[in-house]
């Protein structure tokens, strides 16, 4: 497998194991670029990459922007309200206007599931999903498996626990997809009201006992508890969550010595994990951030830099 054929990156579900591994391999070679004195290669010179974000984001947007810039692409940021129809324009209108400016890729984040997929069906530029609703966040899934593989040397056979609000997490869904495709054993763990129906059909185990999960895991992925979701009262309180599911030093005594602590960020210190765990030896949270740039460079390069012109699709 050395040929990349996909035009868009919408969901890891769409990728084969070989394609996942190609991205990880490519990312490995790009990681070195960011440690150079001159952090730039000309791979995407002359390409235009637009970041169209309908939802606030700092780290994902900056990570994509740096990735594009380090590949010498021109970048542009557009922040839009998710209810742009209030201005009389649909999302498709907005995106078509951007397409009309002859851009090569549109990186989309939207609070509603499916928007990048719908845009990809009717637009020519490559669409990269930077997070849609509770559905997918493929580059996060990729950077997570990249980090695990980097640290552990493999994915296959590892036990990975994903802890937190699984119901509303696009990161959880993408991590599950990537990890399962690469052969890991996945357990999701969280309050029972935040475990979505039928999740075990994705081939994961479900646990409500974080201590049991800590004990068995080679890697613990903590998800952000979104305080804004608390309006829906899925939890009695954040306080109770922190007590029952928060990771602290005491809990980690049960863990394997080399267990990794990961988090897609931004962390709620004192909720998902204590400060000493976040800053402790097991934590690879900042490495995830560094690797994120390499993975996004790989994705941009594969989508924009290796393609024959006739591979461009044309749809209405």
């Amino acid at each position: 497998m050395n040929k990349w054929t996909k035009h868009d990156l919408l969901d890891l579900e769409d990728l084969s194991k070989d394609e996942l591994e190609l991205i990880l391999e490519t990312a490995k070679s790009f990681r070195e670029v960011s440690s150079r004195d001159v952090k730039k290669v000309p791979a995407l010179r002359g390409k235009t990459v637009v970041m169209l974000f309908f939802e606030p984001s700092t780290r994902t947007r900056i990570s994509f922007e740096l990735a594009a810039k380090r590949l010498s692409a021109d970048t542009l940021n557009i922040a839009s309200s998710s209810s742009s129809l209030s201005k009389g324009e649909t999302i498709l209108d907005t995106a078509k206007n951007i397409e009309a400016m002859n851009v090569d890729a549109i990186i989309v984040r939207h609070p509603s599931s499916g928007v990048p997929k719908v845009l990809a069906e009717s637009l020519n530029p490559s669409i990269i999903n930077a997070g849609d609703g509770c559905r997918a966040h493929p580059t996060q899934g990729l950077l997570d498996v990249f980090t695990i593989k980097d640290k552990k040397g493999k994915i296959e056979g590892l036990n990975v626990g994903i802890v937190g609000d699984i119901l509303h997490s696009r990161v959880a869904r993408c991590d599950i997809t990537a990890l399962k495709k690469l052969g890991a054993n996945v357990t999701v763990c969280g309050p029972s009201t935040l475990i979505p129906i039928g999740i075990e059909n994705l081939g994961v185990k479900v646990s409500y006992d974080v201590d049991e999960v800590i004990e068995a895991s080679d890697c613990l992925m903590l998800l952000r508890i979104q305080k804004e979701r608390q309006e829906d009262k899925f939890l009695p309180s954040i306080r109770e969550y922190a007590k029952k599911f928060g990771i602290n030093k005491e809990r980690l005594k049960r863990a394997k010595k080399d267990m990794l602590i990961m988090h897609p960020g931004p962390t709620n210190r004192g909720v998902e994990l204590t400060a000493e765990v976040a800053d402790g030896d097991s934590s690879v949270i900042l490495e995830q951030v560094t690797n994120g740039i390499a993975v996004r460079m790989a994705v941009l390069y594969l989508l924009l830099g290796t393609k024959e012109p006739e591979q461009k699709k044309k749809k209405g």
Binding site: S82, S83, L85, G88, T90, I91, L92, H110, P111, S112, S113, G114, V115, V118, G133
Partner: peptide, 9 residues
Amino acid sequence: EEKEQDLDH
């Protein structure tokens, strides 16, 4: 135009 919004809206 209303049906062309995202699925939540």
